[in-house]
Amino acid sequence: MAIKRYAALLRGINVGGNKKVPMARLRTLVEGLGCTDVRTYLQSGNVTFAADADADADAETTSARAIEGALSAEFGFTVDVLVREHAYLKAVLDACPFPAAELQGKQLHVTYFSEQLTAERFAELDPAAYAPEEFRLGDRALYLYAPDGLGTSKLGDRLSRPALTKGLIATSRNWNTVVKLVELTSAP
């Protein structure tokens, strides 16, 4: 039996008093799905766990749907969930096109997507209009450099509009969280 480590990224919980999910209850729900070594990080919907990788050829999708179902049953609202295995999270970290070591965590963000993105989705967006902010596409991920942080980022706001994310699950994490999720999903 092969055990792999995963991170579940919950979208839009505990933001502005909406969709409140206590982290202790989230850990219990994920443990109830048969996962082990369950840990949460921050209150914004990051949970790491270990699971039998041989059980399902598409363990990420199966785990995400199971967590969504458990959350819906427990709290009565829908939460989009992406589950990603450690190797993927590490590859996203390693492929960063920006000088992450030279930046503050609040200046660099990764938006994880449920599917691969194509440049055509962003064809109408004029990158020069948002300089010095920049974005780059990765493997089911978008890297955003926002020198003044995401809270005031005009490019970040534009990239999160439904027209660009239509039909996809998308959830963003700052660089500090990206690094921490790689650490938490590393072999114990």
Rank of each mutant, 00 (worst) to 15 (best):
M1C: 04
I3G: 02
I3Y: 13
R5W: 14
Y6Q: 11
L9Y: 09
R11S: 05
I13D: 12
V15W: 12
V15D: 12
V15Q: 05
V21W: 09
P22E: 08
P22G: 14
L26S: 07
L29Y: 11
L29K: 10
E31M: 08
G32H: 03
G34K: 08
G34S: 11
D37Y: 10
V38G: 07
V38H: 09
R39K: 15
T40Q: 03
Q43H: 13
S44A: 12
N46Q: 02
A50K: 06
A50T: 06
A53H: 04
D54K: 00
A55I: 01
A55S: 15
A55F: 04
A55D: 11
A57R: 11
A57M: 03
D58S: 15
S63W: 13
R65D: 15
R65T: 15
I67G: 07
E68F: 03
E68W: 03
F75G: 12
D80G: 12
L82C: 05
V83F: 00
V83T: 11
A87G: 05
Y88G: 06
V92H: 09
V92Y: 10
D94W: 03
D94M: 06
A95Y: 04
P97V: 08
P97E: 07
P99Q: 04
A100Q: 10
A100K: 09
E102A: 15
E102V: 09
Q104I: 04
K106I: 05
Q107D: 09
L108C: 07
T111Y: 01
T111M: 06
Y112R: 08
Y112P: 00
Y112I: 03
F113L: 11
S114C: 06
E115K: 13
Q116H: 12
Q116V: 11
Q116M: 04
L117Q: 06
L117R: 00
E120T: 12
R121A: 12
F122R: 03
L125H: 01
L125F: 04
D126T: 11
A131H: 04
A131S: 11
P132R: 04
P132T: 05
E133I: 02
E133G: 00
E134C: 01
F135A: 00
F135M: 06
L137G: 13
G138K: 01
G138T: 01
G138R: 08
D139T: 13
A141H: 02
A141P: 07
L142W: 00
Y145K: 11
Y145L: 15
A146Y: 06
A146I: 02
L150F: 15
S153L: 05
K154M: 06
G156D: 08
D157T: 08
D157I: 05
A163P: 00
A163K: 14
T165G: 00
A170M: 05
T171D: 00
T171E: 00
S172F: 02
R173N: 11
N174T: 12
V179I: 13
V179A: 13
K180I: 04
E183W: 05
T185G: 14
P188T: 09
P188L: 14
